[in-house]
């Protein structure tokens, strides 16, 4: 069965429209992951051992269990305890929470990569804790984190199709609907693959550019 270019051309606009949802889902879940990840990273540096251990255990658990089942959990269990959300919101919260556990680790590594002497110098120069953090430590800790975070964003982008399983109509699900309506799978599935490939190649090229900038 050959590739029908006419059919492919006719469905391409629909798929491109749907990729906007996929991209939106990526950005929203990335933002959620950045925020939750920050809280987790702060929790991992807490003075209370119980908080540290609890958060460490929870992040390990989330990191070693599948996103798909976590999404099912949110999708099916939350409504039972009275929390109903549109599937898109459930999806981005699930994806964001999953990756926040990785991103917390990025924040931690970034902060630890700043030499201890920087803190000591800040103390010696009579900087307060928060000023030392915002003016001395963070400006050195953040740039090396950026390419790592960007790579996680690309990984998250490639995990958005999992949301199709909780009825979010993103790129993958749109292709699925088109395909199953006419029972023509070759063109929609191949196009989805090509769109993913194109977007992630462009994105990783962008990351490499940023990386080059930062190294200089």
């Amino acid at each position: 069965m050959p590739f029908d270019f006419e059919f492919a051309k006719s469905i391409l606009p629909h798929l491109l429209e749907a990729s906007v949802i996929t991209i939106a889902a990526t950005f929203v879940s990335f933002a959620i992951a950045l925020v939750i990840g920050l809280f987790l990273a702060l929790g991992l540096r807490s003075r209370f051992a119980l908080v540290r251990r609890g958060i460490w255990g929870a992040t390990q658990f989330i990191r070693s269990t599948p996103l798909l089942v976590q999404l099912y959990f949110l999708f099916f269990v939350l409504p039972e305890i009275g929390i109903t959300m549109p599937p898109f919101l459930t999806g981005v919260i699930g994806l964001g929470a999953h990756y926040s556990c990785y991103i917390a680790e990025v924040y931690r590594a970034g902060l630890e990569s700043v030499p201890k002497g920087q803190w000591e110098a800040a103390v010696a120069l009579n900087y307060g804790r928060s000023r030392a953090m915002t003016e001395i430590i963070l400006p050195q800790a953040i740039p090396p984190m950026i390419p790592v975070l960007a790579n996680y964003m690309i990984t998250m982008f490639k995990d958005t199709p999992v949301m199709a399983s909780i009825t979010v109509i993103e790129l993958m699900q749109t292709a699925n609907i088109i395909a199953s309506e006419r029972f023509l799978y070759v063109e929609p599935m191949t196009l989805v693959g090509l769109i993913f490939l194109a977007l992630s190649l462009v994105a990783s090229f962008g990351v490499r550019l940023i990386e080059g900038r930062l190294v200089r």
Partner: peptide, 23 residues
């Protein structure tokens, strides 16, 4: 490496599951 890392795994899985039978 670039193709298999660049495309979402679920898309690859569906492609092999639905498209290969057409070939």
């Amino acid at each position: 490496i670039e193709v298999f890392r660049g495309v979402a795994l679920l898309v690859q899985l569906f492609w092999m599951f639905f498209v290969l039978p057409f070939f």
